[in-house]
Computed example of a mutant assay.
Amino acid sequence: MSALRTAAEDYLAMRRALGFKLTSQGRQLLSFVDYCEARHAERVTTELAVAWATHPPRGGTDQVYWSRRLMVVRIFARHLETLDPATEIPPADVLAHHYRRVTPHLYAPEEIAALMRTAGRLAPPLRAATWQTFLGLLAVTGMRVSEICRLDRADVDLDTGVLTVADSKFGKSRLVFLHPSTVAALRYYQRCRDRLCPAARTPSFLVSTRGTRLDAGNVQHTFASLVAAAGISARPGQHRPRLHDLRHSFTVRTLLDWYHDGGDVQARLPLLSTWLGHVDPKSTYWYLQAVPELLTLAADRLEQHTDRQSP
């Protein structure tokens, strides 16, 4: 094993011990190490980092993606420099870098209903029940896909109507409180699951037809087929509908409800950040500028406040 690989694996182990998941970043860093070893390079250099970052495996030409790949190496190089002063840290401006979030597809209530009906037609019955429950939880709680897939039976307390999201993104844990209608739906699924799969091979609350835990990576394929079967298509100028957009839709609906009920949205935003498991309220504030209707409502509220303050 090369010294560079040892340093990379030690670095990843250290950051994971601090609570960072580093799922994609870890793969990318080890890919960079492979690239260096193939060229018999013993140290990180700017030339190597830029060459690797701008030649992704699938030949992508997205410069934002390139800059994100380079950032993975830059962060590692800053750490490595303390151990090996000969390490070169790629300059921050060597590739154009700007943060760009995909405009979400905001599901209308009738689109969510269509997805639920389509999921109900899946076969066998256990698959239909699992997918309806999975989609329903995403829509009414705003949880992450991975969080729902990781839910164990012990995390679902239907007597108190509380879900425990343990060790989620950034190592955070939180409680999610359920509406009585959601509790009823989960009880119904629980009965179906235990009847159709009495010997599940996992403690997971949601189970596949094989009695195993849902795979957060594989569910995307099934969801794409459900979207097509439900007749849901991308709106002009927007990205194709994604599974993660159910989380976005929950957040936007919540903010719109707060504006329409006349409450203090700014004061409530930290509560929404906590509910969603955001590590930084900036992630929640993004919705106010990313969704035109929310931006208009925020501007109107600001104008009303300014008028009241004027002499």
Score class of each variant (00 low, 15 high):
F32P: 04
R27A: 07
S2W: 03
G217F: 09
R68P: 02
S181C: 10
T274M: 03
D194A: 08
A129R: 05
A123E: 15
L276F: 09
L256C: 09
D215P: 03
H98C: 04
P90S: 11
Q220W: 14
T87L: 07
W286G: 09
A7N: 04
T296C: 03
D62S: 13
A8E: 00
T130K: 02
A41Q: 14
P104A: 00
A298I: 05
Q28M: 14
S310T: 12
A113M: 09
L295S: 15
L122H: 04
R43K: 12
L243Q: 07
G171Q: 04
A13K: 14
W258V: 08
F20A: 11
H105Y: 10
R201Q: 12
V102M: 06
R68E: 14
V140P: 00
L178I: 09
L122P: 05
L158H: 09
Q190V: 00
L297M: 13
Y285G: 02
F20D: 11
V50L: 12
F250H: 07
A298P: 01
L106N: 02
D84S: 01
R150Q: 11
T133D: 01
N218F: 11
E293D: 13
T61K: 14
A199E: 13
F134S: 04
V44G: 01
L226C: 09
R193Y: 10
R268W: 06
Y285M: 12
R68V: 15
D194P: 08
E47A: 15
D159A: 14
V291M: 03
R240F: 12
H40T: 14
H98V: 07
T209C: 10
A228L: 13
Y259Q: 07
Y188E: 08
V33H: 08
L137Q: 02
E9Q: 15
E47S: 13
T87Q: 03
D167K: 11
F134Q: 01
G120V: 04
D307C: 11
R27L: 13
F134G: 08
A114H: 06
T45A: 06
A92L: 12
R268Q: 13
L70E: 08
Q132C: 08
L158N: 06
A119P: 05
R58E: 15
Y35N: 02
A8V: 06
W258N: 07
P56E: 06
I232A: 09
A128I: 07
L302G: 03
R247A: 04
D215H: 12
L4W: 07
R174N: 09
R43M: 12
V252N: 07
G161W: 08
L80R: 06
R193K: 04
R78K: 13
F177T: 15
V227Y: 02
D300H: 05
Y189T: 01
V207G: 07
C192L: 15
Q289W: 08
L138Y: 08
C192I: 14
F32D: 01
T202N: 02
A92D: 14
S181G: 11
P180T: 12
L30Q: 03
H244V: 03
Y107K: 03
P281H: 06
P203S: 10
H221M: 06
H248M: 01
L246I: 11
L186E: 01
D84P: 01
A77S: 05
W66N: 02
E111Y: 06
L12A: 05
P90Y: 09
H40M: 11
T160A: 15
D194M: 04
A267C: 02
A166P: 00
L95P: 05
V33D: 06
A17G: 13
L175P: 08
P91E: 03
S208V: 03
L22I: 10
G262V: 05
P281E: 08
D300M: 11
A7D: 01
